[in-house]
Design a protein around this nucleic acid. Sequence first.
DNA 1: TGAACATATGAACAACTGCTCACATGATAA
DNA 2: TTATCATGTGAGCAGTTGTTCATATGTTCA
Lengths: 136, 136
Amino acid sequence: MSGTAVSEMKRFRDDTCQVFCFNRETVQAISRQMLEAPVVERLSGTFKVLGDRTRVMVLYALSKHELCVCDLAAILKMSRSAVSHQLRVLRDARLVKYRRDGKMVYYSLDDRHVLSLFEQGLEHVAHEQPDRDRQD
Amino acid sequence: MSGTAVSEMKRFRDDTCQVFCFNRETVQAISRQMLEAPVVERLSGTFKVLGDRTRVMVLYALSKHELCVCDLAAILKMSRSAVSHQLRVLRDARLVKYRRDGKMVYYSLDDRHVLSLFEQGLEHVAHEQPDRDRQD
DNA sequence: TGAACATATGAACAACTGCTCACATGATAA
DNA sequence: TTATCATGTGAGCAGTTGTTCATATGTTCA
């Protein structure tokens, strides 16, 4: 794939767009502005962590009050093990922090942005009801 | 699981927290405030859609300019089929809209909140570098 | 020390996701 | 109509994810 002529392009499989289709300049301009791979990785990674029922509930509960694993499990009606696994994910994503007090471990939110993200998300969700398959 | 005595609880498996562990009142208070299931569902669903490299790049590209599938595929260096599949997910989540013009279909952002979400996400990500395993 | 208990974690498994491939759909133009 | 092209989509698959189970870790208290 170098200086191949357009006529030869037709032989290529469909695995990348074979011609700079219709807006070569736009494509190049946006390609230059595109987010760098590690940024995309971290950004999608953060959203992925938020993209799970259990973790959403954990974060919401923690936004109300610092809680130990056992209380979280009771609130979510889930096993402590499952909650603990998810808390690890949230810790790794730096969305929660913890503090040890004897046998207990108390978790709380560790990010000033999580709540803003939640609110933005809720706003999107609030305007979500209407008709299917909008074309414009 | 009704009025079972605490001493009997020990026989239960670990699948839900067997005692209202340490903060019965907090647990009950937060349980009452908890988000309703459908809200949790839609909220985590929205974040899940944003939690993917390809879709993050698609949305970012569309935030710069309305684009057809072929141009998007060229920008992302991916097959048109893959991009088309992801555009369907984004459409279903009401994050993009489209407009037909002859054979072409042009996509653009369909949500005033997506960009705010992106910015919040980027802010979180920006403060993410430092030391591992913070305990406080 | 050892028992009891809160939490953490590895393995395993079922469910889900994102890609490719092949084909379908829908539009344009001869 | 047919040929061509942009896009859409179903099946299949490899890779990922979230839970359970069993067990490990780490703390308190006798």
